[in-house]
Design a protein around this nucleic acid. Structure first.
Lengths: 229, 229
DNA sequence: ATTTTGTTTATGCGATTGATATATTGATGG
DNA sequence: CCATCAATATATCAATCGCATAAACAAAAT
C-alpha cells in the first residue's frame, strides 16, 4: 500500500549487480534487481522503492529516460552510477532529477554512506501528507487525523483504520471479511461482532444521527461502504 | 531573521574562494565568505544560509567540527569540499551530516548542479525557521532560544532538538518513529521510552501543569505534536 | 564537578478494546 | 397489516493497553 522498504537496483552488468546486491543486503537493506529500463519503470510503480540505484547504460535505452519518467510523479531518491566521468553528463542527470551521481569505479563505503544520507533525508521530509477527501470528510493519512466539516474528529487507531479502508474507494462495498482482514488481520475474518461494534463507535463520532447514517452505510448481508459523492 | 537567500562559503584558500564567489554570484546567488571556523559558526547562526559550502581544511580547526555543531539544531544543506580523496573521510563527513562531498579538483558546473539539487530539495521540505509564538511560549528558531513568559528557558540539546522538530510544523503530528529518527538517529526508532522520558522532561520545563499540557500534545498510538496557534 | 543522558522498575490513570446482553431494524410470508 | 426471524445496532462492563511520571542510578559528556 505505502512505501516498501526496498532498494531498487537497475544494473545490467552481472558482476556489479551481484556486488551491489550482496553489499546492500549485508547492510540490512532489502533489494530488488532489474536489468532493463522497462522492468525498472514497472517495478518502480509497483513497489515504490525507498531508493533507486540506477546505471545509466542499459541494454534497452538510456537510464536518464528512467529519471524523467519517474520524476513526473515521484520524488523518491535516485542515485546514478555511471562509467562516464563527463561533467556534462553529471549536470544533465542532476537537472533531470537525480539526487546523486557516482562515477565508476566507486568505493562501496562511499555508496553506502550516500545511501544513508538519502534515506535519512527522505524520512525527514515527513513524506507528503496525502489527504483523502470524501464530501465533508477529510482524511489525512500522514497525521492520522480526520476532519468533518473542518472540525477535527478524534478517532481511535481501529476506527481510523476502518475509515481509511472504506475511504479507499468511496461508494464501493467492502465485505465484512475484507474489512476484518484489513483491520484486524486475516485470522479475524469471522469475528463479525468486532466490526459491528466498531462501526457503531465510528458512526457515533461521525454521524449526526447514527440511526440514519449519512456517511457509513450498511449493506445488509454483505458489508459496509462509505457514501460516494 | 528568517532564511536569507545566502550561500555561505567557508574556505581559506584565497584563489578558490574568489573562484567560488564569482561563479556563484554569476549564477545569481548571494554569497557570504568566511575563512575561519569560528566565523563560520557565528555567521551560520545569524544568517541561516540556504546552503553552506565547506572546506574541511581550515586554519583554526577541522571543518567536520562545523558540521557536528550545526547539525545539532539545523538541517540546512552542507556541501563539503576537500582535497582528500579518502573514502574514509567522505564516509565520516556524510555520517556527521554532510549532504554532499566533492573532492578537489572539481568542475564548477558539477558543483553548481549539486547546489541546485540541494536547494530544490530544501524548498520542497519547506521547514520553518522563524519564530513560533503561542501564548507564553516563544521559540526562536534562528537564535535557538526558547522563552516562556519572556523568561529564557534552559533546554538540554536533546530537548532542543525535540522541540525544534515539533516546531517545524506546529499542529502536525510527528510519529514516535519520526521523532526518534530525527533526534537520535534511524537506529533508535524503536526506543519509545527515550521519547517518553524526554518528552516528560521537556514538559516539566515548558508546561505549567504537565498533566494537562498546553503546548506539547500527545496523539495516543501515533506520536506528538505542538499545539497550533 | 556538574549536567545531561540512558536504563530500569514500578505505579496510577484514562482510553481503547473486547465480551456479553439486549434492543432495534427490515425484509418476508401469512 | 402484523408476526417473525435474521441481521444489525446499542449499551454496559471488565480487561487490557498505552501513556505519564517518579525514582534511582550508571554512564557519558562538558
Amino acid at each position: 500500500m505505502s512505501n516498501n522498504p526496498y532498494i531498487l537496483i537497475v544494473e545490467d552488468d552481472v558482476e556489479i549487480k551481484q556486488f551491489l546486491q550482496s553489499s546492500l543486503q549485508l547492510n540490512g537493506y532489502s533489494v530488488i534487481c532489474v536489468t532493463h529500463l522497462e522492468d525498472a519503470k514497472h517495478h518502480f510503480v509497483r513497489i515504490k522503492p525507498l531508493l533507486t540505484i540506477l546505471d545509466l547504460n542499459l541494454p534497452d535505452g538510456d537510464g536518464s529516460e528512467f529519471i524523467t519518467s519517474i520524476r513526473a510523479y515521484s520524488d523518491l531518491p535516485i542515485i546514478v552510477l555511471s562509467a562516464k566521468q563527463s561533467e556534462q553528463e553529471k549536470v544533465r542527470c542532476f537537472d533531470l532529477g537525480a539526487d546523486d551521481y557516482l562515477a565508476k569505479p566507486f568505493g562501496i563505503q562511499e555508496l553506502l554512506a550516500r545511501i544513508r544520507v538519502s534515506l535519512k533525508r527522505t524520512s525527514k521530509m515527513s513524506l507528503r501528507d496525502d489527504v483523502y477527501l470524501a464530501d465533508a470528510l477529510e482524511i489525512d493519512m500522514a497525521n492520522q487525523t480526520v476532519k468533518l466539516n473542518n472540525q477535527p474528529v478524534h478517532l481511535t487507531p481501529i476506527e481510523f483504520k476502518l475509515l481509511f479502508q472504506l475511504a479507499q474507494k468511496p461508494g464501493k462495498v467492502f465485505t465484512h471479511r475484507q474489512l476484518l482482514s484489513a483491520v484486524w488481520g486475516s485470522e479475524y475474518v469471522d469475528e463479525l461482532h468486532y466490526l459491528r461494534i466498531h462501526m457503531g463507535r465510528l458512526r457515533a463520532r461521525l454521524e449526526e444521527n447514527p440511526a440514519t447514517p449519512q456517511y457509513i452505510l450498511t449493506e445488509a448481508g454483505i458489508g459496509y461502504r462509505l457514501a460516494a459523492n
